[in-house]
Nucleic acid binder design. Sequence first.
DNA 1: TCCGCGAGTGGGAACGCTCCCATTCGTGGT
DNA 2: ACCACGAATGGGAGCGTTCCCACTCGCGGA
Lengths: 338, 338
Amino acid sequence: MGASQRPTIKTVAARAGVGRTTVSRVINGSPLVSDRARAAVEAAIAELNYVPNSVARGLVTSRTNSIALVIPEAESRLDSEPYFSAVIRGVSTGLVDTKTQLQLVLVRDKGELDQLTESVAERRVDGVLLVSVHRDDPIPGLLEEFGLPTVLAGRRSPSEPLSHVRSDNLGGAEEAVRHLLGRGRRKVATITGPLDMEVGRSRLQGWRNALREACREPEEVLVARADFTEKSGQRAMRELLRRVPDLDAVFVASDVMAAGALVELRAQGRRVPEDVAVVGFDDSIIARHTTPSLTSVRQPVEEIGSAIARILIQEISDPKTPRRHVVLPTTLVVRDSS
Amino acid sequence: MGASQRPTIKTVAARAGVGRTTVSRVINGSPLVSDRARAAVEAAIAELNYVPNSVARGLVTSRTNSIALVIPEAESRLDSEPYFSAVIRGVSTGLVDTKTQLQLVLVRDKGELDQLTESVAERRVDGVLLVSVHRDDPIPGLLEEFGLPTVLAGRRSPSEPLSHVRSDNLGGAEEAVRHLLGRGRRKVATITGPLDMEVGRSRLQGWRNALREACREPEEVLVARADFTEKSGQRAMRELLRRVPDLDAVFVASDVMAAGALVELRAQGRRVPEDVAVVGFDDSIIARHTTPSLTSVRQPVEEIGSAIARILIQEISDPKTPRRHVVLPTTLVVRDSS
DNA sequence: TCCGCGAGTGGGAACGCTCCCATTCGTGGT
DNA sequence: ACCACGAATGGGAGCGTTCCCACTCGCGGA
């Protein structure tokens, strides 16, 4: 048969012997319909195989029933980081039985940013999920200007006004460093992520806290900055070994960077964990495949995804909902590198 | 100012002193507009900051300017396989400056399948991209029933009628096995993917071809079936070692499975590549992080993504376009495992 | 001079829905 | 017996576009 002529609400009304409005009421679950009418309409809908046209509905309700998940990906990290995949999976889970569709928007360059802007201006989404935000990210401001509900995974700064969900980066980092100290390590260095991102800053702060807690000074010479890529991790490790040849542990702010660090350690003939213990962050798939396998701080990425989705849906349906700031706990997964 | 009242085409028309139709013509680039009128309209659009309402347009044109990327993910492979991420990236690239939006649909269970069905029935997308199809996948049939343009990454069978783009799995597998034979290996086993998927079948066929080509019999005892997961790869390797203790090479149909195979080989005290050489498929990120690093067949996943996107856009704009079947070449990346 | 034609234009209708309103009932209270 | 009231219902209008069609001009050719 094919698509030929889709039935409209009128067809259904005629078939059921009622008015359009009654059909609309049934569809939208209004209680102001007699049982008789409701039954007739439901029968007609089933017979005709009627499906409401969401575009037409959207025109009058000015709702699209879809949200955007925006992934800025300047560093082309999507491939190397299961992080994004897990977020996507979580978001999708959080959207189940909400009838909300998920638009995926990759913002890699100016052109794609413009496309996002246009899409937002055209009101093609009811709200936006934002991942991996930088301190001076232009996107949140853009969305605010358009008055579009927005929820972040992570936050721009400790005073983030927008709703957001993040994992306990500070606590996770502290735990990782405490673990290293507990193993008897005395010179614990760290490789940080970009410091224009809260994740980067708070993981660094966690390292500092744990050292101070153990009455050790978090000296600047023990800190090497990188940008979440493997190469930058390797470079940072080289730098650290040059500056502090006798370090015996490194806390690395991501697994991918830790993999790079391991490469460098091996290249310089340091044994892991005997000479230098290493702890990563994320507990991503590569943690299990490095040599040695990598101790890492697991964060509940999928839960973050479903949480931001649910919060956004909530804010869309009731814009007056107070903003929420959620922190999810991390867990240390100990493997062979420490 | 915020969103307050968005201007409509009427506002623009009034401002420019022309009729609605003329504004519409300008927006849609019709040549039947005088320069004077066009200039006036463009000025008005700029002043009012007018953006056409795509939902209203969609209602009359019955076009949504969005497509769906459907990822069936029963095996929850999204996390472990950069494959999907790369496809997503490619698709997004293929969509640049088409004004088309990308909907991501994960189909993990019955509920999500129903949601997809509904979304398709509601005509919320103009076409669908399908990834990782199984031989008896119900989704393509579903889409065909609704008459929705569909393009696949990979194919269900060699006689696939729908447009699709895939990599040269057969040739890639042949090359991998030839490479092993060229290294002097005599007993080359294989670990296959699921045989209800074309990828699984053709990679296996490639293994057979290459052996025959070298006048060796592709004995069944050398074939162990797995399902693209790491665990299944490990299990298959164990099985192979039991059946053929003197094998000296394995061609594994995916890197993730190869990682599992490496674990088993090490557990059984076989040295790689000295005792057993291993080649994987995909050249995914984990290939660089196994010990030893993994020789693998690289496939141009991102290109596949952008190709299917472009083909779909083409078929949407002109449904009469003949179906296209595109094959993209693979490359062997030699590392330490062979 | 008149006609025909094509370029440029704008108003009406339609896309399929929801919402506002007016209308029709039955029912219980007086 | 009457009125008021709430439940149930349906028609009209409108959401912001595009498309069809009719209309007005100039202008060149007969």
